[in-house]
Design a protein around this nucleic acid. Structure first.
Length: 635
RNA sequence: GCCGACGUAGCUCAACGGAAGAGCAGCUGAUUUGUAAUCAGCAGGCUGGGGGUUCGAGUCCCUUCGUCGGCUCCA
């Protein structure tokens, strides 16, 4: 008996029945990349599984996302195997591949510490050396229950119990280790070439706070030692860009025990902040926004009306004034609602776009705080747009254009996600469908590719999220556009229509930067602390070579300063090299070195932080070029 | 909040249960310097806070605060 398969290149090949993917793999020795698995009719498949007749075959190597996943999933089994050998009483959780690596969750009889990772790694290396074949076994539900009962694996039993009735239950076996798993896996453990255990952390079983806390071991794996090293090196580079480290070194901000989660902005950080908000303000005025400022503390009654008192209380801060309950605002919307409601509106007044750089406070769990990325007090570049229902499409489009304008300036590429109705949503199904389809239409009419996030919308409406990608390929959620059906109802907002009757306006809630603190962190890491000139806390440093040129240096300094350029004069009694090094370390974009030659010629020697010595230039020319660079916000 | 690790000078890090140190930064002086670190000297500490064990604690134990890596949550 023979079977026929079609290869990627269209060639049809005939094999004896029972031929496995592995046989094919062996045959393809000419390929230099290591094959990990085979796609049969587009489905992931085990290398040791026999080939079905009339199937399409594609080979998977590490450089496909499926390949990397299979590879690292097998690495996680090697990890679990090693742990099981070293700690026979351990109970297994789950162990999937994740982006850049894998993890496995365990319940140890005695908690282990990160020092123990070394010995686990050593045991893993042994298992790899043993080249144990990895075999798939399909068993019945009863056999599976029996097997994991014997092995004392309560978490696995829980997983089995939740598998659908008709599901084929598969296990993967390597040596004396067996794990409930859908696969696929590598043919043998020897193929896991380069790996490293990278961390140890607590993780609730199935991510639920009510469940026991397991210990999660993180690791990463690559097909070669070189690629592993490369990856670890990249992590090292990312650490150098850490906004907490650069924030301290460049005197941008600080955090103190006295106010955990409430960052202190220093002069340098504040300059960047001001530039960001100046830019924001100009663009918003141009786009037809008003700007307001609402109080930080408002009476309990307002929070009851908005629903926050019931739904957000555990995240809020409270105070008592004149025997009345007050709350510190965790969101800006209720304030904006009051501003809108403080006068009557004609349909002719809409849309009203009301922006606010609003400081909000939220009591986040202490364990979640992280530099400027996760804080308890932050400034949202918020805006609420109140409009006629038929204006929604145009307004959403306007916000998308504005987002694009901002993100371009920073050199970010971005990804768009559309989140739809969650299970516990408010409002009618029709309202949701209509709103969602409006958002869809806007995205499609602009040819924006987006990912659909089913059921991930806010409880009050669907939303479009913008995920920025920084220069290291990491993704951060910043902008969001949310259709809100709840607030207009709760605050009984109205406008008078053409018909003289009161109608309910539509509201969208949006942020572009997201949170100023987070944006600052993101920009610090994105630029590695070397801000473009328009954002740089110090734009130019004037460096006289000796005391003889101090007067001239002072003159140059004043010229720049008069033009509102952020300039410093380093007239310390130090060598030029020393001053240059310091300016470089501070990541100042331009240095102007002035010595006898420049005094003589009336020029300045221009040095750019990333290009070195650019030679002498007329000061007026330099200033003109610099101002152009600042105005254009060149990256 | 939960799990684990860590808190020593402004920063980066040393110090076997036995006299708290170095480099950088800071200050003082000398040096007048040409594109990434001139030399010398000085000063700098309740070893996060509280309690305990010990003849003796930076080091061991308890507790508390904070930080880091995760879980959960989210801008």
């Amino acid at each position: 008996m023979q079977i026929k398969v079609k290869l990627e290149d269209g060639k049809e090949v005939v094999y004896p029945r029972g031929t496995t993917c592995m046989d094919l793999y062996r045959e393809k020795t000419t390929r230099d990349k290591e094959l990990l698995a085979v796609l049969v009719d587009g489905q992931e498949c085990d290398l040791n599984a026999p080939l079905p007749d009339n199937s399409n075959i594609a080979f998977v190597d590490f450089d496909s996302s499926q390949g990397a996943r299979i590879y690292r999933h097998s690495a996680s089994h090697v990890l679990a195997h090693a742990v099981k050998r070293l700690y026979p009483g351990v109970k297994l959780g789950i162990g999937p591949a994740i982006e850049n690596g894998f993890y496995y969750d365990f319940e140890f009889e005695q908690p282990i510490s990160s020092d123990d990772l070394k010995s686990i790694e050593k045991e893993m290396k042994k298992i790899v050396k043993e080249k144990l074949p990895i075999r798939r076994r399909e068993i019945t539900r009863e056999e599976a229950v029996q097997l994991f009962k014997e092995k004392g694996e309560p978490y696995k039993l829980e997983l089995i119990a939740e598998l659908p009735e008709d599901q084929i239950i598969s296990c993967y076996e390597q040596g004396d280790f067996i794990d409930l798993c859908t696969g696929p896996h590598l043919p043998h453990t020897g193929m896991v070439k380069a790996f490293k255990l990278t961390g140890l952390a607590g993780a609730y079983w199935r991510g639920d706070e009510g469940n026991p806390m397991l210990q999660r071991i993180y690791g990463t794996a690559f097909p070669t030692k070189e690629r592993l090293e490369e990856y670890l090196h990249m992590l090292e580079e990312a650490r150098k860009r850490d906004h907490r480290k650069l924030g301290r070194e460049l005197e941008l901000f600080s955090l103190h025990e006295e106010a955990p989660g409430f960052p202190f902005l220093h002069n340098n950080g504040n300059i960047v902040w001001q530039e960001l908000t100046d830019f924001w303000r100009r663009e918003h005025r141009r786009a037809g926004y008003e700007e307001i400022k609402t109080p930080l503390i408002m009476n309990r009654s307002l929070w009851e009306q908005s629903g926050h008192w019931d739904h957000f209380r555990e995240n809020m801060y409270f105070t008592n004034i004149d025997e009345q309950d007050y709350a510190v605002k965790p969101m800006n919307c209720p304030g904006a609602m009051l501003v809108f409601r403080s006068k009557m509106h004609s349909y002719r007044d809409l849309p009203r776009r009301i922006a606010e750089m609003g400081v909000v406070h939220r009591h986040e769990l202490s364990g979640t705080l992280q530099g400027l990325l996760r804080v308890r007090s932050f400034t949202q570049d918020d805006a609420h747009i109140f409009m006629l229902p038929e204006q929604v499409e145009e307004e959403v489009g306007g916000v998308i254009d504005l987002m694009d304008r901002f993100y371009r300036v920073f050199g970010f590429s971005y990804r768009v996600e559309l989140s739809t109705r969650p299970d516990k949503a408010m409002g009618t199904r029709e309202m949701w469908d209509k709103a969602t389809s409006i958002l869809e239409q806007v995205l499609e009419s602009r040819n924006i590719t987006y990912r659909l996030n089913e059921g991930d919308g806010a409880f009050y409406g669907p939303k479009i999220d913008f995920h920025l990608e920084d220069c290291m390929g990491r993704s951060w959620q910043c902008g969001t556009i949310q259709l809100d059906f709840q607030m207009p109802e709760k605050f009984d907002l109205t406008y008078v229509g053409e018909d003289g009757e009161k109608h309910r306006p539509a509201v969208i809630h949006r942020v572009i930067y997201g949170a100023m603190e987070r944006l600052l962190a993101l920009l610090i890491e994105h630029y590695g602390g070397a801000f473009p000139v328009w954002l740089a806390p110090v734009q130019v440093c004037v460096i006289p070579v000796t005391e003889r040129s101090h007067d001239y240096a002072q003159k140059i300094y004043s010229q720049l300063s008069d033009e509102f350029i952020r300039v410093t004069l380093d007239d310390r009694n130090e060598k030029v090299g020393y001053k240059i090094r310091e300016a470089q370390v501070k990541k100042i974009p331009y240095m102007l070195i002035v010595g006898d030659r420049e005094v003589e010629s009336g020029q300045v020697a221009v040095r750019r932080r990333d290009q070195g010595d650019l030679g002498a230039e007329d000061p007026a020319v330099f200033i003109r070029q610099l101002k152009t660079e600042i105005n254009e916000k060149s990256i």
